[in-house]
Design a protein around this nucleic acid. Structure first.
Length: 318
DNA sequence: AACCGTCACAACCGCATGCGA
DNA sequence: CTCGCATGCGGTTGTGACGGT
């Protein structure tokens, strides 16, 4: 399931992410955002390429990633969308909150593809057996419907672009087949009508107000901190000038305006242990293993808060 | 218990696309 | 317009888990 860690020629780590690496990435991204994936690993103290960091964050560590089994509704939705859109995993994922394209793609290849094919084959068999009974009245010749099983299972032949709605209607011309496939076929008369249902939500203003990383990281989400008893508790970041000031900064300006270099310097000087005792914003407790959020007891004695100076710059106490 | 085949999925890779200089 | 860089996307691979023999 996981890859054995290795190193490539440039010294970048590859393979499975360790707990420590996950912690670093989470801490960094939740605090500073993903201002530049290429540069990020250097500042976050990760011996990974930016691409690898981005992938790890997007597919696994991101707060809004829903883990766990796919529900039946989700699976049906994926099958339906795949029939409409083909292998456009990111588009499908965009319509399925909490699921990543990678996750959907994997699930499709391991489970849903077979199920979908079995489904269509079953329909085809049912249809074929029915067609055997269909005899031309005058010549006594068995009628063979145009659609073959390969045509049915081949997504390209069903894609809107190939415009095979007529073929498809043949497949579903059998009432029993059509009824059982109701959830899998286009219901629009207009062969491009499916686009409406896809594009419509994009015209909705709220569609574009999707949760951004900044929202996740800095807007009214709890900051995990430790109390004197070594317990972790959360406080809202809405009153946090520190985080708000970071939130309002954009991209690389974060570096200049918020003493970003100081973060790196501090990290370079810090031990691995005390680095992770800094509180960081976390809106991810629902899916990130708790060990990623809560430093060990040994680490707690190094607890060091961050503070803003008069100019709104962020510093770390050591 | 050991071996083997299959499954599930994290991660990698190469290409496409977008965007700013 | 072109070039280079950053990011996104989809296909593919690698590997641990698991079940069957």
């Amino acid at each position: 399931m996981v890859r054995t860690p290795s190193c490539d020629k440039s010294g970048m780590r590859k393979g499975t992410w360790t707990l420590e690496e996950d912690r670093k990435l989470i801490a960094y991204v939740t605090r500073y955002g993903s201002w530049n994936w290429r540069q990020l690993p250097r500042f976050a103290g990760l011996a990974r390429c930016g691409k690898s960091c981005r992938l790890r964050w997007m597919n696994y560590l991101r707060p809004d990633v829903k883990r766990g089994n796919f529900t039946q509704q989700e699976e049906e939705f994926i099958i339906r969308m795949h029939k409409k859109l083909g292998n456009r995993w990111s588009t499908i994922a965009a319509e399925l909150p909490g699921r990543t394209d990678n996750e959907i793609k994997n699930h499709w290849h391991t489970t849903l593809k077979k199920r979908s094919q079995q489904n269509t084959l079953t329909k085809e068999e049912a249809r074929a057996s029915k067609s055997k009974d269909k005899v031309l009245p005058n010549k006594g010749v068995t009628v063979t419907l145009p659609a073959t099983s390969s045509q049915i299972s081949d997504n390209s032949s069903l894609s809107p672009a190939s415009s095979t709605s007529s073929e498809f209607s043949n497949i579903t011309s059998d009432p029993s087949t059509a009824a059982s496939m109701q959830n899998l076929v286009f219901e629009d008369d207009d062969e491009f009508g499916f686009l409406d249902s896809y594009i419509d939500p994009m015209n909705n203003e709220s569609f574009w107000k999707e949760l951004t990383l900044d929202d996740i990281s800095f807007n009214n989400v709890p900051i995990v901190s430790e109390d004197t008893n070594g317990c972790f508790q959360s406080t809202s970041s809405s009153n946090s000038n520190t985080l708000d000031s970071l939130h309002k900064s954009t991209s690389e300006s974060i570096v200049a305006d918020n003493d970003f270099g100081g973060f790196f310097d501090a990290y370079a000087e810090a031990t691995v242990d005390n680095f992770w005792t800094q509180p960081y914003v976390a809106g991810m407790s629902s899916h990130v293993p708790t060990e990623l959020l809560a430093p060990s007891v040994a680490e707690s004695e190094y607890f060091t808060p961050i503070y803003d100076d008069l100019w709104g710059q962020t510093h770390l106490y050591y």
